[in-house]
């Protein structure tokens, strides 16, 4: 409490002094310069850097209802004098973000100043008269795929380098579903072996990519040639194909395997006369072709129990 009182008294004090000063002070004392050398002449004035007259930014004269599409007709990097917006970019701890003038960051980032919504609308309107309606037959994706099973993909590149050619534009990707090709079991198997990892089992797509020729036209022709060649080759049956061994088989054929033989020797009759023999063959093929898991193993076990006349699993 005492301190508080003191605080007040200090304030009072300061104010009384103020009175004294304000009443006595008549004119402001000038700061005197200490002139030791007693030079009379004035020091030479420093040379001012020359200022060049530049026109004020163009943005200052723009009306606020102008047609922006005419001001900024195409893609271009940011220019502070042309864009009438007080945008800023960057940050500092204490100062304000740098303004648009001499701000390299704003020039580095991409901008969409040429594609503002009104401009897009105008361009769409201009293009509309060249459009035709989408064919009704291709209304769904399934129909599209049914009528046009072959799919080719190329990329066009457009950018502001000195050359308008991009070497990536030559690459052609061709894609077709294997089920769309008329192949029988042998041909399908051979086709898959010929294309190798270009076939994706999960999606059923065969994908051929060509990039060896310099233009996309040539690459496309090459893709088509490859597809045709592989297709016809897969229908050919060579004489050496009959020499296929069990190891070469792409799937498990029970009748050709040891399992069948041992079953026959066990029962001493051909397998089609054994009771539950067919079930057993299915169970083994299932186990071998679909991989073993708890389900396939259980069916296998159950059929073996039936086959051998054992009591069922608890």
């Amino acid at each position: 409490m005492a301190l508080n009182l003191m605080k007040n008294s200090i304030k009072m004090n300061t104010f009384s002094k103020l009175q004294v000063r304000s009443s006595s002070g008549s004119s402001e004392p000038q700061f005197r310069v200490l002139n030791l050398k007693v030079t009379k002449s004035k020091p030479a004035p420093r040379r001012q850097p020359k200022k060049f007259d530049t026109a004020p930014p163009r943005a200052h004269q723009m009306p606020t209802d102008q047609n922006w599409g005419n001001v900024w007709p195409g893609p271009r990097s940011f220019h502070p004098a042309t864009v009438p917006l007080p945008v800023r970019q960057g940050y500092g701890e204490k100062q304000a973000p740098p303004s648009k003038y001499a701000n390299a960051e704003l020039m580095k980032i991409p901008n969409f100043l040429h594609l503002t919504p009104p401009v897009i609308k105008r361009q769409c309107d201009a293009l509309r008269k060249f459009c035709t309606p989408w064919p009704k037959e291709l209304s769904t994706d399934e129909n599209c795929e049914k009528h046009f099973p072959l799919e080719t993909t190329t990329s066009s590149y457009c950018y502001s380098s000195p050359s308008i050619r991009n070497s990536l534009a030559r690459i052609v990707t061709l894609r077709i579903k294997l089920s769309h090709l008329p192949l029988d079991q042998h041909a399908k198997d051979k086709f898959r072996r010929l294309v190798g990892d270009r076939y994706d089992e999960n999606t059923d797509y065969v994908t051929i990519v060509a990039d060896r020729c310099p233009t996309s036209k040539q690459n496309f022709d090459y893709c088509m040639y490859l597809l045709t060649a592989v297709f016809h080759e897969s229908w050919n049956v060579e004489p050496w194909e009959s020499k296929k061994t069990l190891e070469d088989m792409e799937y498990y054929d029970w009748t050709k395997n040891q399992s069948c033989k041992s079953l026959e020797s066990m029962f001493e009759v051909p397998f089609d006369k054994i009771e539950h023999g067919k079930e057993f063959s299915e169970a083994v093929s299932n186990l071998m072709n679909n991989g073993e898991n708890l389900q396939t193993l259980k069916t296998y076990g159950d059929t073996v129990r039936k086959l051998l006349g054992l009591s069922k699993e608890i």
Partner: peptide, 11 residues
């Protein structure tokens, strides 16, 4: 597998 087939797998 071929040696044992047909066997009864018991989990």
């Amino acid at each position: 597998f071929e040696h044992l087939d047909p066997f009864i797998p018991v989990l």
